[in-house]
């Protein structure tokens, strides 16, 4: 494995931790959904670096496509800001 790949995987892992903390701390639930999308994008880059493009092909539609769709539908039915 090349050193460039190890550096990129480390940066993506750090970004996913930061995005998860911000998604927990956010009071606006739509902003939390956006941070969740950032976290799944970082995971997609990590799976790509670790030479698993088939897992990216399954993980990205579920975590960037379906999960924000269901979450935004739920926020539309209830309310946007957390109390």
């Amino acid at each position: 494995m090349e050193p460039v790949a190890i550096l990129l995987a480390t940066a993506a892992a750090l970004l996913s931790v930061i995005a998860t903390y911000l998604a927990i701390e956010a009071k606006d639930l739509l902003v939390a959904t956006v941070f969740s999308a950032v976290q799944s994008t970082a995971y997609a880059l990590m799976y790509y670096i670790l030479m698993a493009p088939d897992i990216v092909l399954v993980y990205v539609p579920v975590s960037v496509g379906l999960l924000p769709a269901v979450t935004i539908l739920l926020i539309k039915k209830t309310e946007r800001y957390e109390r």
């Binding site: 956006v34 999308a37 994008t41 997609a44 790509y48 493009p53 990216v56 092909l57 990205v60 539609p61 960037v64 496509g65 924000p68 769709a69």
Partner: peptide, 13 residues
């Protein structure tokens, strides 16, 4: 192949 999937699904968000 993962690049095409990522570009299309980020557009969906």
């Amino acid at each position: 192949v993962s690049a095409l999937a990522l570009a299309l699904w980020v557009y969906a968000l």
